[in-house]
Amino acid sequence: MKNKKMIAVIADDITGAAELAGIGLNYQLKTEVNTVVADATDADLLIINADTRSLTAEEAKQVTRQIAVQVAKLKPQLVYKKIDSVLRGHILAEIEAQLEAAGNMQRALIIPGNPSHRKTVVDGIYYYQDAPVHQSSFAHDPAFPISASHVHHLLRADESVQVLAQKASLPKKGIFVGDVTGQDDLAHWVDQLDENTLVAGAAELFDQLLQKTTGKQTQTDTKPVTLQWPRLYVFGSTFYQNRLEIIDGRLNNIPLTYLPAQALTAPDNYQPDDYVNHVSALLKNEGSAIISISTEGINVKIDPVQLAQNMGNIVNKVTAQAHPAELVIEGGATAAAILMQMGITRLYPEQQLAPGVIRMRVPGNNQLYITVKPGSYVWPAPVWA
């Protein structure tokens, strides 16, 4: 018998998992973000961060299949596949794994994009801010650089994956990608779903799905949020680097320090102790610090997985030494590496500071909060107040 209460999500990175958790809070759902599937949970919304985007396609498929089998044992009323809104990652491999684990599902529907962020799909072409996505900053993504804008290219798919026009009916069997330009399109695709359909999409589709499933109206938390001190900010993405207004080595009057070049170019030999001591001293003396990365002047290829692991190791050491009350993290791979190094497998979302920017409590540690956001989203004002 299905759990008529619980909705399960399998996400491919932690920032996507947190983003959906924020939406769950808006629907007054008891929400958990986990990296493992527990034997039992009383959550209304259980979100599992599979952290598969940094894996190979075959590894991602194996991990997703294992999690899907474990989630199925909890008998949720539905399972949502959270994907990157710009179709980065191993989406088809993971969808195939979930279909295999489910056994009885005959079709999957992929709805990429977030129309309110001007991420849309028309005739199978993905647009970002009204231009084909390969003309945007996403062309320079370190792990999944985008060189063409048709969804077949983005998914690395052949013609067996069919593109469906707006307002089209959903065929009974196969894997499909739906065009989407606005909220009406999202609502249309949600209306096409049934228990034999695996649905994969980003945040705005999930919002539409919760609206229909719960029958509730969203209630955004309007209480002012002030982060505690000391605060450690970790920027693991370069998406907005050239737009930051850094004055005398400070951003918003917070000291900014770049990861040493050796951590990027010779990660196997890098010893972080001096840098850890430097950042810890900033936290103790000034109450906040920013760790960031800069590739200026570096001409060697940087391994994004190794970079995230190094960042996780450094933050873990700084946290143990300086005990920040708030970790504010940009970038999914960076956040996942930090959580792994710190041994954190479960988070309880408490506040949505802005869409996609979620502050979460660490179970068993009332002294630490973790806030995460995707690299392509802008930090909201409460993060700096």
Score class of each variant (00 low, 15 high):
A18N: 13
A261R: 11
N313Q: 15
E58K: 11
W189M: 13
E100V: 04
I298W: 15
L55V: 06
L55Y: 11
D42Q: 14
V151G: 12
I146P: 13
E94I: 04
M311W: 10
Q341N: 03
Q228A: 15
A43T: 03
V328L: 05
I48R: 04
M340Q: 15
T319H: 04
L339N: 01
L74D: 03
F239W: 06
K301L: 07
A11D: 11
Y27H: 01
A97Q: 09
E32P: 01
I344Y: 00
A40L: 09
Q77W: 01
G174A: 08
P267V: 07
Y128H: 15
P115L: 07
L307F: 10
L45E: 03
K75P: 02
Y258S: 09
Q352H: 13
L209R: 05
N49L: 08
I48H: 08
V79P: 03
A187M: 06
P374D: 02
I91W: 03
K82I: 11
S136L: 03
Q228M: 09
V315D: 13
N114G: 01
Q192E: 05
T265W: 11
K317I: 00
T265V: 09
N269M: 03
A18Y: 14
K61Y: 01
V378C: 09
T56Y: 00
S237T: 05
A50H: 09
G331L: 05
V36A: 13
A101P: 04
G24P: 01
L20Q: 10
A157R: 11
A143M: 15
I146V: 07
N34I: 00
E245W: 03
D141T: 02
K75A: 05
H188E: 12
I95V: 13
V9N: 12
L210Q: 06
V133Y: 15
I47W: 13
V383P: 02
G312W: 11
D123G: 14
E195Y: 09
E19I: 00
H323N: 14
A337C: 10
A17M: 07
R346Y: 08
I7L: 14
F138S: 10
Q66S: 12
T197M: 07
S169L: 11
I247Q: 06
W379H: 09
A333W: 01
N114D: 06
V190P: 02
Q98L: 12
L25W: 08
D268H: 02
F239Y: 15
A50N: 11
D194Y: 11
Q219W: 02
D207R: 12
L353V: 03
L154V: 14
N366M: 03
E204R: 07
A143R: 10
L46R: 03
